[in-house]
């Protein structure tokens, strides 16, 4: 067992576990896009960043790929983390404004403007579909092609490969095409609809606070 501190709580985690897993076990919510419990950690979206270290020596790391260590001190919701997380979600929305998952996340984080030029690429390259196809379906029909600005998810030679069983898992797991945002025009890059109309879900054990939990159980920041 490894002893570490997350948000002031002294906890014990299994050796080899990631900080994200340890936090989730303690009921601490760290928002994430590219993490899925059934798939290998990938660290692509960077939304799950946390502050690691002691005193002045602090750094931001993606918690989904960060293994737990003895004596680690972790802050999952500090001022610095919140600021950087907002920036990351803004950048993701700028490349993918029609994702309801992303728009919901922005609403939860209190983002009220996207400061970057919006270029809809329809993909945030989180790799969920590629990992799902490879690891869960044992298929490997889709993958990344190209690199840099031309990197994208595709099939080889743009034909449906023999390996594809039409399971639809890649669409199901995708944070963009799973639930497309249907808002017609975006104001400052945000649709605004969910921000106002999102149903507030309650925790399994409701204490009536009504403010700490937003849609889908995310903490309201």
């Amino acid at each position: 067992m490894v002893k570490l501190t997350i948000d002031g709580m002294r906890i014990r985690a299994l050796e080899g576990a990631t900080v994200l897993e340890a936090a989730q076990e303690m009921g601490i919510v760290i928002p994430t896009l590219c993490h899925h419990p059934g798939l290998s950690p990938y660290g692509a979206c960077r939304v799950c960043i946390v502050e690691v270290g002691k005193g002045d020596r602090r750094s931001l790391e993606a918690s989904c790929t960060l293994p737990v260590e003895h004596g680690q001190v972790i802050l999952t919701n500090s001022e610095k983390v919140r600021k950087q997380r907002k920036l990351i979600v803004e950048l993701l929305i700028a490349s993918c404004p029609n994702s309801k998952t992303l728009q919901d996340m922005a609403a939860n984080m209190g983002i009220n403007r996207i400061r970057f030029r919006i270029r809809d690429r329809g993909c945030i390259l989180c790799g969920l579909c590629v990992r799902y196809c490879k690891e869960q379906m044992k298929s490997g029909g889709i993958g990344f092609t190209g690199r840099g600005t031309t990197r994208m998810v595709a099939t080889a030679f743009e034909v449906t490969p023999e390996e594809c069983r039409n399971c639809g898992g890649c669409e199901w797991i995708c944070p963009v095409c799973e639930r497309a945002c249907t808002a017609g025009n975006l104001i400052d890059g945000l649709c605004g609809g969910c921000q106002n109309l999102a149903p507030v879900e309650t925790c399994p054990v409701c204490t009536g606070c009504s403010e700490s939990v937003g849609p889908h159980g995310y903490k309201v920041y």
């Binding site: 490879k134 490997g140 029909g141 993958g143 690199r147 099939t155 030679f157 490969p161």
Partner: peptide
């Protein structure tokens, strides 16, 4: 014995 996309991905990278 690799998926074609893996070979294609390297070739386009």
């Amino acid at each position: 014995e690799l998926p074609l996309i893996q070979v294609y991905g390297v070739a386009t990278f």
